[in-house]
Design a protein around this nucleic acid. Structure first.
Length: 645
DNA sequence: GCGATCAGGT
DNA sequence: CACACCTGATCGC
């Protein structure tokens, strides 16, 4: 359960991913993704009642999240009260207090989070500054640069707080192999097994949760075998996922579930009940996706570990690891950049890009123009179509989409009369990183020594710069992979090598030299569904501006100035107290060089920000000072830290 | 009967 | 370790 209580210090009238207690009074709700632990209170009678009374309260989320949510009858009562916001489309929302009529404007931008279908991060911009709520996220290869652009779109100083998913925000989870590596390992294991005969089947022992879809779709895509699941109606409008799933049990790849699945497996039975085909017994192996991590200096890089005669564990994570959580707060290079990198890619590089799954098929198109105020909210399932264009205006009294920046916009382009403070946010970068530090311990002892904000989602890490850290030796980790990739792959089970009904003999869990399954080439061999994140095939917005205004060129940012102000952050939930002090880094290093995308290496690489350092104790000094002066910092029961440089 | 909470499991 | 659930027991309404 996320320990984030739902409210952010800067904007306490909105609630995110929590719908109980204090959140019952919120003026607006936001849901980052459809995992139960982020939906607490969402179907409670108390909230339902409030909804019936407060007609101006809405839930904002991505179109995919809405689709998934409404698949469950338990949440259907939300149907008319959900407003979907397109990815990467800054949208203004009026937060109205129904009692007093008091109104506050806020601009929210949804950014793909890579955690599960529909998952997003929320960037809020308003009178109390800019805050980023990450929700749960897994940055994928190539996404670091997106984050840079994100941050370069707003001056660093405007980022007051980052409410961060700190699941693995601990040095002990220093590395989790990249999505591509894990995928590649699983793919080859599955391939090696199911190609042996039509009676060789694989059971993917997945927990009930959204987030495995990219695994299913990629396996299906590569192997031409659909994955058996219990239910797929939630994906009925997402053909990119749906086409790879089936409820036909005769397939060779299963991800079905049953409470007694483990027991079944002992008896050679799949969770869906079948044990044979054409009266011939099936040969089954099971693969359990689970988090595996690798310490900074560990050479252990197997992404598949054999745990039994027919059992394997495969590395898989919904969350970013410690090394991935180092989010560049701004971009190093130059700048015309716009907020969002995906818009900037005119050159279609070979870079493997993880695109969020779940592109919605629109049942119908809805024209949205300035006359259609009511439509947005009255419309049922197929959400109003909007283009991912800058400057679009959705027409509802309280919701406007607009371009994020005005830098490239002709004034005439502004359709909304609303002022958009985002305007000022474009230049001035600082090569900062959000970094989490240490302490996964729950012992009082450690908490005392290192007073950090705790919580899965919550603590805020502060940008910091350090010139003398020990930089992770990325090369050490991945160089070797390059060298051994091919031979490793050769060690994979193949239909010819593996005889009988034994399961593949590989991937020993010991220090594996040859058992390592990982490939820098995985981007080639493992296709990740490309579907243009949430782009819509039909356009509708009337006031349509030029596309890509946000980022005219494929160029990246140019570092014009360095913003020295970085507010400290923090606070999780209502108990937390924001620290409003500002910090001026004395030695904000000048980002050097031009940003280049990391095309060739893994997620862990932080190519564009060579100065990035590991957090060091001295970085906490400022925080300590604040603590010493009595500023409130709430320590909750989890790990992670607040970096207050 | 429902929800909330907890313990225990995968 | 951790997640994202699930089940079952207990309690209160």
């Amino acid at each position: 359960m996320s320990s984030f209580l739902g409210q952010m210090a800067e904007y306490p009238t909105i609630s995110i991913d929590r719908f109980d207690r204090e959140n019952l009074k919120a003026r607006a709700y936001f849901l980052s993704h459809c995992h139960k632990d982020h939906m607490k209170g969402l179907r409670a009678p108390t909230l339902k009642r409030r909804l019936e009374c407060s007609l101006k309260v809405f839930l904002y989320c991505s179109p995919v999240t809405k689709e998934l949510l409404l698949t469950s009858p338990k949440y259907r009562f939300w149907e008319k009260r959900i407003v979907t916001i397109e990815i990467e489309t800054p949208t203004q929302i009026s937060l109205v207090d129904e009692a007093s009529g008091e109104k506050e404007e806020i601009v929210v931008t949804l950014l793909p989070a890579g955690h599960c279908p529909g998952s997003v991060m929320f960037l809020f911009q308003g009178k109390n500054g800019t805050v980023l709520y990450t929700g749960d996220f897994r940055l994928a290869k190539g996404e670091a640069s997106r984050m840079e652009l994100l941050h370069s779109g707003g001056r660093v100083k405007d980022i007051q707080s980052v409410y961060l998913d700190t699941t693995f925000c601990d040095p002990r989870f220093y590395q989790i192999p990249s999505r591509e590596e894990c995928l590649s390992g699983i793919l080859e294991l599955v391939r090696g097994w199911i190609t042996r005969s039509p009676y060789h089947v694989v059971w993917l022992n997945c927990k009930a949760a959204y987030g495995y879809e990219y695994l299913f779709t990629n396996l299906s895509e590569e192997l031409g075998v659909q994955v058996h699941v219990d239910k797929l109606d939630m994906f009925r409008n997402m053909p990119d996922i749906l086409q790879h799933l089936t409820t036909d049990r005769s397939t060779q790849i299963h991800a079905c579930r049953h409470p007694k699945a483990e027991e079944y497996f002992q008896w050679n039975k799949l969770p869906c009940g079948i044990a044979s085909k054409n009266k011939i017994l099936l040969n089954t192996i099971n693969i359990k996706p689970s988090t595996m991590w690798f310490g900074e200096r560990s050479r252990k890089t197997n992404v598949i570990v054999r745990t039994g005669e027919s059992s394997y564990r495969a590395c898989f994570s919904f969350h970013s690891s410690y090394s991935e959580v180092r989010i560049p707060l701004s971009c190093n290079s130059n700048a015309d950049c716009s907020v969002l990198k995906p818009l900037c890619r005119s050159s279609q590089s070979a870079e493997p890009k993880y695109k969020p799954l779940g592109k919605l098929k629109r049942a119908r198109t809805i024209n949205v123009d300035s006359e259609e105020e009511g439509d947005l909210f009255d419309d049922p399932l197929p959400t109003p179509l909007r283009h991912k264009v800058p400057y679009q205006v959705t027409h509802h009294a309280e919701v406007f989409s607009m371009t994020a920046l005005s830098q490239n916009q002709p004034e005439k382009a502004r359709q909304s009369t609303e002022r958009c403070r985002v305007e000022s946010m474009q230049n001035s970068f600082l090569a900062n990183f959000i970094d989490c530090e240490e302490s996964n311990s729950e012992s009082e002892e450690e908490l005392e020594t290192l007073p950090l904000l705790q919580g899965k989602l919550g603590p805020v890490a502060l940008p910091q710069q350090n010139a003398d850290g020990d930089i992770p030796q990325w090369d050490v980790f991945f160089k070797r992979n390059d060298e051994v990739t091919d031979e490793c792959l050769e060690n994979f089970p193949s239909s010819t090598e593996m005889g009988g009904s034994q399961s593949p003999k590989l991937f020993s869990d010991s220090d594996g030299e040859s058992t390592h399954i990982s490939s820098q080439n995985s981007s080639q061999s493992t296709h990740i569904t490309d579907q243009g994140s949430q782009g819509w095939d039909k356009s509708i917005s009337v006031p349509q501006m030029e596309q890509n205004v946000l980022c005219p060129e494929d160029t990246c940012c140019d570092l014009k100035s360095r913003d020295k102000e970085v507010n400290t952050v923090s606070s999780v939930g209502k108990e937390a107290t924001m620290s409003d002090g500002k910090y001026t880094p004395e030695e904000a290093a000048v980002p050097n060089g031009t940003h280049t995308d990391s095309q060739s290496s893994s997620d862990f690489e932080i190519p564009s920000t060579p100065e990035a350092e590991l957090p060091k104790p001295e970085h906490l000094q400022y925080l300590y000072k604040k603590l010493a002066t009595g500023e409130n910092i709430v320590v909750e029961k989890r790990k992670c830290s607040l970096f207050d440089i």
